[in-house]
Nucleic acid binder design. Structure first.
Lengths: 336, 336
DNA sequence: TTGTAGGCGTTATCAC
DNA sequence: GTGATAACGCCTACAA
């Protein structure tokens, strides 16, 4: 019972009647030590309530700490929540801690967390970046932090990345709508400055072309905020302008709003209209909303795998940009 | 340009032409040093790309690291996601890192993270516990980790806690239903072994009593899984048994399912039935679902505040159990 | 205001 | 297989 001070390896060694070196070896490589040693040391550890100090170990080892950084724009968003979940799982399995940063699209905050990770000598970082600041990434990398980008690509020379193929997702959505009766397609989209919006749009156009149509068959309605309320307004606009009844919404929130707007005007799904969303966020309790699913959990797990491979394989490791395929989910129950 | 090795304070000092002590002081207490010193040191830091090593600092300081642990059962759940969001905000503002653990109701995993936090000498931990293992908590506390419990109370002698008053929430929900026309109340509940279910139930009964009724006016349907699908089945059961058309569901998922079940049988809300959920999880795009809101963000922020107060005030600090009030959210648009 | 020296707890390198 | 000892990078007395 040390007087106030926390027990260290020296205390353990003294109590066990062995040397500190043996205690350290027992803790870190138990199989390199005799059965008897293990028991003596363990008993002393238990009796003292000794807890190893990772700061000291990390410092001494001179390498990285067993910490993975995870930087995402939002956590109250099913896509990123699933990523967090997957990363947390994978990190736990490998004995890593996850240092989470929710950036809220704030570059300053992103930078602060970068700095924090650097100071912690984090082993790696998984980043869904707002701003792709090459310089900051380089700084992290220069102190040995490995980086995997989520939903954004880096030069494959400089690091790994994982992402969903949004062009393909847009294609699948519009291709599905084209298989239902009607003419033309309405696209309720966010600003093209957002990469995902741009990609899904271009997939939409590709699907139209593949079906023998053209960009002219697409009525695009652009909204600033991709919310349920904006979706309701978009639905009204489509109806007022006599637009297509086959509607692809760039996310599930907008799609839910469009369903609502149609419903308020007496336009029922799937009889009088078709709506497909994006993301499979489970917003629609009615299960009337078709959508594009994304392998979110696999994405997160792969990101961690890539990072750990880089950590362990060292020079053997080659960077790669992994693309995951989205998939169509058809839900056809009535909306009324 | 050090050859491979990372620059340390000695390198910075050498380049700046000052002593290491001055470098340390410049970094940690910039205002205790001359303008000129600050510039020289900063220039050297920039030139070398020096990044302070937190492991060394923590070790030397002998105290806790600037890490807050956060242990939650799920992250793909709007309630906990909001907590994570709030905690991340507050921690960032105070310069703390958040070490996240998603326990998935797995006590072993919870324990592993406890151990990790202990080894990291985390300054504190915010815990939404599965099992309230006093012994483990005590271990963390014994090495100086401060603890705040979320959604569960501890002896106020042993630590702080924050929670929402679920009894009150149940009361509000049923009280609202009682203000609408009809007779009796149906309660779609989860197992009473879950604390929240038990509390909301007892609030329901209290509301009935307060209105001059009794427990007999409550038709309770217990489901194992609190999902949308289970809600649909519960709705059918209520209709089949000729149960009340005023339904309180213990969470929004079940409520969404009940709305769906009613809708499929041609029972419309709010004309022929009333449904209220719990949690305000934003599941219902139609905005037809009344619910009980919880000040989730405030809860998370307060938890961090309590922790930091304990950290800073030291002996001055007195533990407290803080109860947050849920509130009624009425949404009355038609469901059809 | 600045410089110097010692030690935080651990691990690795040696001899035994 | 085991025991002694020197670093890891930083902070804080204390002395100048």
């Amino acid at each position: 019972m040390p007087n106030g001070r926390q027990p260290d390896q020296i205390d353990v060694a003294r109590l066990a009647g062995v040397s500190v070196g043996s205690v350290s070896t027992t803790i870190n490589r138990p199989d390199m030590v005799s059965e008897r040693m293990r028991e003596r040391v363990q008993a002393a550890i238990d009796e003292l309530g000794y807890v190893p100090n990772r700061s000291a170990a990390t410092l001494r080892r001179g390498g990285a700490s067993r910490v993975l950084g995870l930087i995402i724009p939002e956590v109250t968003n099913a896509f990123y929540a699933a990523i967090v979940d997957a990363v947390s799982d994978a990190a736990d399995r490998q004995g890593y801690a996850v240092s989470l940063c929710v950036s809220h699209e704030d570059p300053a905050r992103e930078r602060r967390h970068f700095e924090l990770l650097a100071q912690q000598r984090a082993a790696g970082a998984l980043i869904a970046p707002i701003t792709l600041e090459g310089e900051r990434l380089a700084r992290l990398q220069s102190i040995g932090t490995r980086i995997v980008l989520i939903d954004r690509h880096l030069d494959v020379e400089r690091g790994c990345s994982v992402a969903v193929d949004d062009v393909r997702g847009g294609f699948l959505a519009v291709d599905h709508l084209l298989s239902t009766p009607g003419r033309g397609i309405a696209l309720v989209n966010g600003p093209h400055s957002i990469l995902q919006c741009e990609d899904r749009w271009s997939g939409s156009v590709a699907a139209l072309r593949a079906a023998g149509g053209s960009e002219d068959d697409l009525m695009e309605i652009t909204v600033d905020e991709m919310t349920v309320a904006a979706g309701v307004r978009a639905a009204f606009e489509i109806l007022d302008r006599g637009g297509p009844r086959r509607v692809f919404c760039i996310n599930d929130q907008l799609a839910t709003g469009v369903l609502e707007g149609f419903s308020r005007r007496g336009v029922t799904v799937p009889d009088a209209a078709r709506v497909i969303g994006y993301g499979d966020l489970g917003l629609d309790g009615r299960h009337a909303l078709s959508t594009i699913g994304q392998p979110k959990h696999a994405l997160g797990e792969r990101a961690v795998e890539l990072l750990l491979d880089e950590l362990e394989a060292g020079a053997e490791h080659t960077h790669s940009a992994q693309i995951f395929e989205p998939y169509l989910i058809v839900r056809e129950s009535t909306s009324a």
